[in-house]
Design a protein around this nucleic acid. Structure first.
Lengths: 292, 292
DNA sequence: ACCATTGTTCCGCTATGCAAACCACCACTG
DNA sequence: CAGTGGTGGTTTGCATAGCGGAACAATGGT
């Protein structure tokens, strides 16, 4: 089963304090509340570690400098604790303290973690030439992504040599529900896992849920019928793409997409040319990597 | 002053246990011992957080799967604690537990941290076109790096379109002492900081120290005389390059290099053509980014 | 059956979290 | 310019979460 069931621990104090407000803003990143095991005292869970990492996650594109109070507000962690954790992270090189701004920003330490993972993913080496070929054919970008919380994170991206290309590189986060790669992932995982994730997505945004749900169900049908999912501007109106997922590479479920600007990739081309080619690409990679 | 002065806390138990062995192996990654403040009870330092992150650092290229015992051995953290920390990291998505191997490996969570940092570095956007130009001119790779512990970590890399190119992408770690980019960094920082880092490097490898030291001192002279450092195969016999550093971009000291296979880049070309161009490239970027 | 190896529980003791208090700075404002 | 409120962040004291040595369980190889 998928592993969530944390936080609440971390933010429980904040929910007490702010229980009249919109609770979901407290879970600023992709944090979930755990439902199962109502309040098991998991003596194995190290809160301090979870919280420290949660601080690091607060920083994102466009959130460069954050102070203690802001971090405390976003995470629901009390200020003195944030102060200590942030100080620790700074000593370790994962945060820098900018005297000028009196705020923290991410330090160089965070980079080295991700790279080690990337360099161990065999699928990148194997897939790159095929991806390049498809990118050139479609004049678009081809990427590999894995799930993290409620996002897909790119682990490899290949661009065509066309002058216009998507700017999302390795490490970029895309939402699960509205992108072709996320829908392909959802379509490929076992149903209980999917339901769990969908539940989390629903909780996150009840208002949009009917629309989001419709898109995902369409994705499931597409996946069943044709082996790939589409996203035609549901995430970003100018971007379209197709996605396919496969299990068993590098110990996880891996998804591929091919996407680009809507005015280059017509629906017809996506459905009849690019989609099928992406399916065959993934099949070939699966064979090469000795999937059973 | 640079911020180290941690660990010992983390590994203090191990040094008790193994004090007859070579202590430095305990500090498997780039961990330093703190010298100042002999044993101040730093009530602000959160050991659990430091240790959890230290576990993540154990994984590297070629170290894909690690078990509890191995992690405990590498970090000097007692086994039960490793077990709990690793369990926590797994719940959070920073580690995955491979049933098949009975070991842990890095999870997708680690990726998203680094990306947020990269997307906030203005220097990447500004520098990329200049880097591309120099890469094409020199038929080699041009990168930007920042220091993390005793390594330089790439935050941007641009390759020429030449078929042979270095494979080090964003996130790659290069040693400080033997690469052109590392030497440029060392030459550009204030002397006390440099001495501290050199001390750490010396402690790490006393045997190689005379040779390493000579290379760095040559680098300091080169930097003084010509504005750039060289590395002619001292790190990897087949790779050569030049490096330049600059302070004040994005709140940190940033270094640039241009490097490639030794059989393409002659010493003469590096010294007379590429080095000076890299110096001017960095100067232009400094001006563009409004450095005082 | 035996030992070697690897991971998980137990429980006393201590490191750590956090509420409240405290400090430092700034901007008004009478 | 003292007074006052508002903003940031860092220190105390005490209750408790979580660390870690030793013991335990679960494998696997011989």
């Amino acid at each position: 089963m998928l592993g969530f069931k944390w936080l609440d621990r971390v933010a429980v104090r904040a929910t007490d304090d702010f229980k009249e407000g919109n609770v979901s803003v407290l879970y600023s990143n992709d944090i979930e509340r755990f439902d199962e095991e109502p309040l098991e005292k998991d003596r194995q869970f190290v809160t301090a570690l979870a919280r420290g990492l949660e601080l690091l996650r607060c920083f994102g594109p466009g959130e460069r400098y954050l102070g203690v109070t802001e971090l405390a507000r976003r995470t629901g962690i009390p200020k003195p604790t944030v102060s200590r954790l942030a100080g620790t992270l700074t000593k370790l090189g994962y945060l820098d303290f900018s005297e000028e701004h009196g705020r923290y920003c991410l330090g160089s330490g965070v980079l080295s973690l991700g790279y080690a993972m990337l360099s161990n993913l065999d699928v990148r080496r194997v897939a790159r030439p095929f991806m390049q070929e498809l990118a050139e054919f479609s004049r678009a970008s081809v990427s590999i992504g894995v799930r993290d919380r409620l996002s897909m994170v790119y682990v490899e991206t290949v661009r065509s040599s066309a002058p216009i290309a998507l700017q999302h590189g390795v490490g970029a986060r895309l939402p699960l529900a509205t992108t072709s790669i996320g829908r392909a992932y959802l379509a490929a995982i076992p149903e209980p896992d999917r339901n769990f994730l969908l539940d989390q997505i629903r909780i996150r945004d009840e208002a949009q849920w009917p629309r989001i749900k419709a898109g995902i169900e369409q994705g499931l049908r597409d996946y069943e019928d044709r082996g790939f999912c589409l996203s035609l501007g549901e995430w970003n109106p100018e971007i379209v793409g197709v996605g396919v997922a496969i299990a068993g590479l590098d110990d996880s479920i891996t998804a591929f997409n091919c996407g680009g600007p809507a005015y280059i990739l017509t629906r017809e081309k996506l459905e009849n040319e690019i989609g099928p080619r992406l399916v065959s690409l993934v099949k070939r990679i699966g064979n090469l990597m000795g999937r059973p």
